[in-house]
């Protein structure tokens, strides 16, 4: 029988602390911080990291992937419309063509492949971490984010009383989904006015999300469903093609900005 190496508790703790601190210290400054590790954020991070950029993704949950694990009604099949198949092929995700242009994939398989691809590309993650505020420069350019531990934000401030910390980057991407948390924070400061959700015309929303993906304020880009909230585009059903392609688009735009 194979024997595990003799390692003491203190060695385990030291390994965790050292490696975490080393990475955290390194990523206090990066090329791009993405808030939200759903499909659009993961896709954006993956492509940016593949292009050699230093990328940190902030995720408030312990798990990555957002809603990409399951489709509608908690059923774990995800639907993607063409031309989303291009991304599925690139990530080597198996899928079935149900009807002309409509593809279905296994949620856990698709999501785990996307996460793995982002990790393989060199993206680093700060999970269980919430976005708290923006770092703004004198000309109101977005230059980073203020973060805290998720459990801290879940408790009343009187109990936790833990100050957040700030990390900086050349570009911040809001991939927080329907909440558009980063854009909303900018709105709180009176620097932008979002349009809220458009109620109608679901069929056309995927095209529009891609079209409106991009810079919304100097230093701040928006992708995925956060685009919908920012611009008042129609709310979408559980189809993920636009999320993946929006992530791809925002990465292209970010790369141009980072040149």
């Amino acid at each position: 029988m194979e024997k595990f190496s003799p390692v003491g508790e203190k060695d385990v703790t030291r390994a965790i602390v050292t490696e975490f601190a080393k990475q955290f210290e390194e990523y206090v400054e990066s090329d791009c911080i993405i808030v939200g590790a759903g499909p659009s954020g993961l896709m954006a991070g993956r492509n940016l990291a593949r292009a050699g950029k230093k990328v940190l993704i902030i995720e408030r949950n312990n798990y990555l992937g957002g809603g990409f694990w399951i489709g509608g009604y908690l059923m774990n099949k995800v639907t993607i419309r063409k031309p989303g198949d291009r991304v599925l092929d690139e990530l080597d995700i198996p899928y079935k063509e149900i009807s002309d242009g409509l593809l279905v994939a296994d949620g856990p398989h698709a999501c785990s492949k996307l996460i793995a691809s982002a990790c393989d590309s060199g993206v680093k993650f700060a999970n269980m971490t919430v976005f708290d505020d923006l770092v703004l420069r004198g000309d109101s350019r977005v230059a980073g984010v203020v973060i805290n531990w998720t459990p801290v934000s879940a408790l009343p401030r009187e109990i936790t009383c833990v100050d957040p910390v700030a990390i900086e980057s050349k570009i911040v991407i809001d991939a927080t989904g329907h909440d558009a948390q980063v854009v909303k924070k900018l709105e709180e400061r009176g620097l932008i006015k979002t349009k809220g959700f458009g109620a109608m015309w679901v069929e056309r929303s995927e095209d529009l999300i891609i079209e409106h993906t991009g810079e919304v304020h100097p230093g701040l880009l928006v992708c995925g469903m956060a685009v919908s909230t920012t611009y008042g585009l129609p709310r979408m059903g559980p189809t993920f093609g636009a999320m993946l392609l929006s992530g791809e688009t925002v990465a292209q735009i970010a790369l141009m900005k980072l040149k």
Partner: peptide, 22 residues
Amino acid sequence: LYGEVQYEHRKILGQTMAFGVL
């Protein structure tokens, strides 16, 4: 918003076929 103007501009210039705005 900046992005709204950019979208309309691309549409005017024929650079996008996307539609769906009311």
